[in-house]
Design a protein around this nucleic acid. Sequence first.
DNA 1: GCAGTGATCATA
DNA 2: ATGATCACTGCC
Length: 177
Amino acid sequence: MRKVVPVAFFDRPTPLVARALIGKFLVRKRAGKEEAYMIVETEAYHGFEDKASHASRGKTLRNTPMFGSPGTIYVYYTYGMHWMFNVVCGKKEFPGAVLIRGVESIRGPARLTKTLGIDKELNTKKIGKVSGVWIEDRGITISPRAIQKTHRIGINYAQEWAEKPWRFIYKNKEPLR
DNA sequence: GCAGTGATCATA
DNA sequence: ATGATCACTGCC
């Protein structure tokens, strides 16, 4: 079973999409070659009120892709050296995005983009085969018990919003089926 | 534990 | 125009 997830998958509340992405595959095609990795860690950034979100102070040049239609790719540069890869969720003009923090064998959002060659070239593009980055459902079901929900990290400035359980991690304790 | 590194944004 | 900040990583 190998199915490219449709745009409708992302047209849902961001935390729900972040949860649903665990166990899906991130596929990257470059120079004619495909690499696929199972997603094991995500974080949701949801709405104007989320103080941890780039959109909390309204639309700016950088965060404009967050206001795009579901399935838009939002890539931004931070700490003078790292690219972060997000997929936009929810209706156009609603700011929501899921940060892909880790895949099987590549942990860490910046290491992921470096390994997969994801940078500003992909920013604002639509996730899908045309852009060379897409998500596949390969028939793996992850039980709720195998998903750890925690607070988001690296956002201590966000006060009470830092406590929201919007980070999802696959605990590699149970066999896949 | 913290330096590196530079774009981005708020302030002015 | 300027300065603080930053959804991180790798080395101490």
